[in-house]
Design a protein around this nucleic acid. Structure first.
Lengths: 103, 103
DNA sequence: TGGTAAGTTCGATGAAGATCGTACTACGAA
DNA sequence: TTCGTAGTACGATCTTCATCGAACTTACCA
């Protein structure tokens, strides 16, 4: 099984501006919440979203390049999961604070 | 001394989407950081920013309407301060996480 | 009662970015 | 090898929004 990880910033390359900008979009927040319920990761296509596949891919890229999530390939699927540990180390409480809200 | 507070959402009207969107802008993040150093509040004009006065007013309005800060009038000045307690209650750790980063 | 200083509001502009359809790639199965 | 599925990349469009200048408001002071 191939498990190539897609390009993403190292922990010390993550910038808080990029993270906040990535999170400040409703669809992306929806993605984050879906990922929070699946610690082992989730296939992009399985997340229910009100946008087309190409828009979904766009948002996933933004989140990945900001350092919020990590994605690796499994066959034709792409599995994404939150970079919880990295984010917790850099911005302790941030992710928890956001997820606690839940509306 | 008049101390009228400008219109702002009540604690239970604050939406996490609005907060994150407000924070996901470099100039506004700069404002937040300046306010974090001044618990007693600060006059808008005293914050050093790379934008004109009207743009500054725009950003302050976004932050206020999102529920991130509160502003009251003192004479011809407007004093702003972070709504630390409200934010901490709604999204524990979020603000701390952001401010801890500091680049 | 002027004058000035702090700040807002409005309208215009330009840039950023969310969205989509289409074409493309990569992988697995028949 | 051919087909179907998962997902990306690209180009176009449309919307959102950051920015500015100019005009306005309010308060303080001489």
């Amino acid at each position: 099984m191939s498990k190539k990880a897609l390009p993403q910033p190292a922990r010390d390359e993550i910038r808080v501006e990029a993270v906040l900008q990535a999170l400040g979009e409703p669809v992306r927040l929806q993605i984050i919440r879906a990922l929070a319920d699946a610690p082992q990761g989730i296939a992009c296509g399985e997340i229910e979203l009100p946008v087309t596949a190409s828009t979904r891919a766009h948002h996933l890229r933004i989140l990945r390049e900001a350092g919020v999530l990590t994605t690796h390939t499994e066959g034709t699927r792409r599995i994404s999961s939150l970079r919880r540990e990295d984010l917790e180390t850099l911005y302790p409480g941030l992710l928890t604070g956001i997820l606690t809200a839940r509306q």
